[in-house]
Structure formats: C-alpha cells, structure tokens
Simulated scan of single mutants.
Amino acid sequence: MMDSIVLIVFVTFKVLVFGTGMFYAIKWHYDRGQKEKKMDKRAVLRAGGQVAAVFMLALLGMGLFTFFITRMTGLSLTLP
C-alpha cells in the first residue's frame, strides 16, 4: 500500500516537472521564432526533414546493432 502511494506521488511530481519544463521550452522557442521570422520556410522544412532522417537512420542502426549483439551472445529472440 505504501509503495503504491510513493509511486503515485513520484510519478505525479515527475509529470509536473517535465510538463512545466516542456511548456517553457516550447514557449521559449516559439517566442524566439517570432523574433526571427526572417528564416525561409523551405529552410526550416529541409532542416526538419534532415533531423527526421538522421533520427530514423540512428534508430535503424541501433536496432540492427541490438539484433546482431543478441545473435552473437546466443540470446533467444523468439516470442513465447
């Protein structure tokens, strides 16, 4: 009983802290973007696409790395 109360309190605190931090981070970036509207929309879209592509490649690389490491160490990857 006590463990679940502590868990609820810590999870609630964590959500509040991260939520507040994300709100202010988004607000700061939005306000900064309003000041610097000189940037071309195509440049922003291109940069966003590059970030998404790098993220997907990193995700694929990490998945393949994990797969090969588990195969080399003999871990079973079958589902029950």
Results as ranks from 00 to 15, higher is better:
residue 25 A to R: 15
residue 35 K to T: 07
residue 36 E to K: 02
residue 49 G to N: 01
residue 41 K to E: 10
residue 70 T to Q: 05
residue 8 I to N: 09
residue 27 K to S: 08
residue 66 T to M: 02
residue 5 I to A: 09
residue 80 P to V: 00
residue 15 V to A: 08
residue 1 M to G: 12
residue 7 L to H: 07
residue 59 L to A: 08
residue 32 R to Q: 09
residue 1 M to F: 10
residue 18 F to H: 10
residue 29 H to K: 06
residue 52 A to K: 02
residue 54 V to P: 01
residue 35 K to S: 02
residue 29 H to D: 07
residue 22 M to E: 10
residue 32 R to T: 00
residue 68 F to A: 03
residue 29 H to L: 08
residue 74 G to R: 06
residue 58 A to L: 06
residue 61 G to P: 10
residue 77 L to Q: 04
residue 39 M to T: 12
residue 41 K to V: 10
residue 12 T to S: 11
residue 65 F to L: 14
residue 30 Y to I: 08
residue 9 V to M: 11
residue 61 G to E: 11
residue 2 M to I: 15
residue 15 V to F: 07
residue 18 F to Y: 12
residue 66 T to N: 03
residue 1 M to Q: 10
residue 26 I to Q: 14
residue 69 I to W: 06
residue 8 I to L: 12
residue 6 V to N: 10
residue 41 K to W: 06
residue 8 I to M: 13
residue 1 M to W: 15
residue 66 T to D: 05
residue 51 V to T: 11
residue 27 K to N: 11
residue 4 S to C: 07
residue 67 F to Y: 11
residue 59 L to R: 02
residue 22 M to V: 14
residue 23 F to T: 05
residue 8 I to G: 14
residue 20 T to F: 10
residue 58 A to V: 07
residue 31 D to S: 08
residue 25 A to Q: 15
residue 76 S to G: 01
residue 24 Y to Q: 12
residue 18 F to C: 14
residue 78 T to M: 02
residue 2 M to L: 14
residue 70 T to C: 06
residue 72 M to N: 04
residue 60 L to G: 01
residue 18 F to W: 13
residue 25 A to E: 13
residue 34 Q to R: 09
residue 34 Q to G: 04
residue 45 L to M: 12
residue 47 A to H: 05
residue 6 V to D: 04
residue 7 L to E: 15
residue 62 M to C: 12
residue 63 G to Y: 03
residue 21 G to R: 05
residue 37 K to I: 10
residue 73 T to H: 01
residue 22 M to I: 11
residue 44 V to I: 15
residue 14 K to N: 10
residue 69 I to M: 02
residue 5 I to L: 07
residue 22 M to W: 05
residue 63 G to Q: 06
residue 30 Y to C: 09
residue 61 G to S: 13
residue 43 A to E: 06
residue 23 F to H: 12
residue 78 T to Q: 00
residue 41 K to C: 06
residue 11 V to I: 11
residue 63 G to M: 07
residue 79 L to R: 13
residue 21 G to E: 07
residue 6 V to I: 13
residue 1 M to E: 15
residue 33 G to R: 01
residue 4 S to N: 15
residue 15 V to T: 11
residue 79 L to N: 08
residue 26 I to P: 00
residue 5 I to M: 08
residue 2 M to R: 15
residue 52 A to N: 00
residue 42 R to I: 15
residue 55 F to R: 00
residue 14 K to Q: 10
residue 72 M to V: 04
residue 47 A to L: 03
residue 57 L to Q: 11
residue 19 G to W: 01
residue 45 L to G: 09
residue 71 R to G: 00
residue 14 K to P: 00
residue 51 V to E: 04
residue 49 G to L: 02
residue 73 T to W: 03
residue 68 F to K: 09
residue 24 Y to N: 08
